[in-house]
Amino acid sequence: MGVIFLETNSSQPEFDKPFSDYEHQLTKLKRRGIYFPDSEKTNVLSLIKQHGYYQLINGYADAFEISNQSHEKSYANGTEFNDVFAQFYFDRTLGNLLFRYLLNVEENFTNLLSYEVAKKFGVNNYYGSDLLNQFPSVMSYLDMRRYTNSNTSSLTKLHNLSLNCQKDPTKWYRENCNHIPPWILLMNAELGITINYFKILPFDIKKEIISNLIPPVLQYEQYEEYECSRRSRRSGRDYSELDIQSGYSHLFVNGLNLMREFRNCIAHNNRLYKFRSKFTVSSLIRNIPRSTTIYSTEEYYNGIGKNDLFSLLIWIIICQPNKAINLLFIDSLHSTLESFKEADPSNSFFVGSELPGDYYNRLKEYINDIR
Rank of each mutant, 00 (worst) to 15 (best):
T8E: 12
R145S: 14
V217D: 06
F109C: 04
I288L: 07
D62N: 14
F81S: 05
L251E: 04
N104A: 11
D62M: 06
H24T: 15
D238Q: 14
L98H: 03
Y60D: 01
F340K: 07
I370S: 01
F262Q: 04
L201T: 04
N188F: 00
Y127V: 03
R234Y: 13
I184Q: 01
V123G: 02
G357L: 12
L29V: 08
M139F: 10
L213G: 03
C177F: 14
Y115H: 07
Y101T: 04
Q222M: 11
K207Y: 08
P215I: 04
I180T: 02
K323A: 09
D308N: 02
N149G: 06
Q12A: 07
I214D: 03
T156S: 11
E221A: 14
T336V: 13
L312P: 01
Y239L: 12
L201G: 02
F310V: 00
T148V: 12
N160Q: 15
R286P: 00
L218E: 01
Y22G: 04
A86C: 12
S291E: 00
L355F: 08
G33Y: 06
G192M: 06
P37V: 10
S249E: 10
E40R: 09
Y126V: 01
N111S: 10
Q245I: 09
D38W: 12
L56Y: 04
T293Q: 08
V281P: 01
Y300F: 12
I314W: 00
F198Q: 02
K28C: 06
N269M: 10
G236Q: 09
Y126S: 01
Q219S: 15
T8L: 09
F85K: 02
Q50N: 09
Q87T: 10
Y101H: 04
G78N: 11
P321A: 09
K306N: 04
S153Q: 15
L218M: 08
T336S: 15
M139V: 12
K49R: 10
P321T: 11
V3L: 11
F329A: 03
D21T: 09
Y127W: 11
N178P: 05
E40I: 03
E72F: 10
Y220V: 09
I316K: 03
K323C: 07
Y239C: 07
F90Q: 03
N361L: 14
R230M: 15
I209P: 01
G303C: 04
S277H: 04
F350T: 08
S211K: 11
Y115S: 05
N124G: 04
T194I: 07
Q50V: 13
L98F: 07
Y300K: 03
G33L: 06
L256D: 00
Y89G: 05
N43Y: 14
P18T: 06
N43Q: 15
D16T: 07
M1E: 11
A76R: 14
F262V: 06
L131F: 10
L337C: 09
